[in-house]
Amino acid sequence: MSLLRIDNVTKSFGGLTAVSNVSFEVEKGEIVGLIGPNGAGKTTLFNVINGFYKPTRGSIIFKNENVSGKKTHKLCKRGMARTFQVVKPLQRLSVLDNVIASAYVRENTHKKAQKVAMEVLEFTNLAGDAHVISKGLPLGKRKRLEIARALATKPDLLLLDESFAGLNPSELNESIEIVRKIKEDGITILIIEHHMKIIMSISDRVVVLSYGEKIAHGTPTEIGTDSTVIEAYLGVAHEGGAHA
């Protein structure tokens, strides 16, 4: 059985259908890339998966349980964590406190929560910034803090929303390495990304959304040669020139 099944999910905002009848599965242990042009509905799909929105139609099956409309914090306890495209650090708290706050989901004492937090900060190369107030962190590190916080909740499924956007080349390599290590630890990853090269190199499978609909689904090689995708997605990206 798959860890996550998205079953005919539709999400509309009034007249606008942001996600339209999308279905796919994520198997345990794999990295699935979710790509598509701006406004394709990727973030909205994440918001449906992690319970911020109830799907207008369809359902989300997580660990063999229909979780559509379940509260976000409950899903986190069940083993689903996410990062935000527009980072949401707990601004006036230190980096360490940010991560401790999320470690408390599984740990009961401050000592244990802090231990988990420090391990996660080591893992994400943020230990040196543990006592920095997170408002003052540069974007690259804030993106990593998002990952660190999510990891501290000890998830089975990690939803990464553009964790690589806005990073410089060395930060990019650092983050790719971290994502690889997360996978090695047995955590399943669903990742939204615009950098085509990265997504093709780290994903086991790729799902392509365009205007809310799933237009393709397959291995990176299959997707890379799919004419619909090249037209709908790569074409847009090249013309727009916004993302390479």
Binding site: T72, C76, K77, Q91
Partner: peptide, 10 residues
């Protein structure tokens, strides 16, 4: 600091 972030942190 952030209610949405807090929710998603469990």
């Amino acid at each position: 600091e952030d209610q949405d972030a807090a929710e998603s942190l469990g």
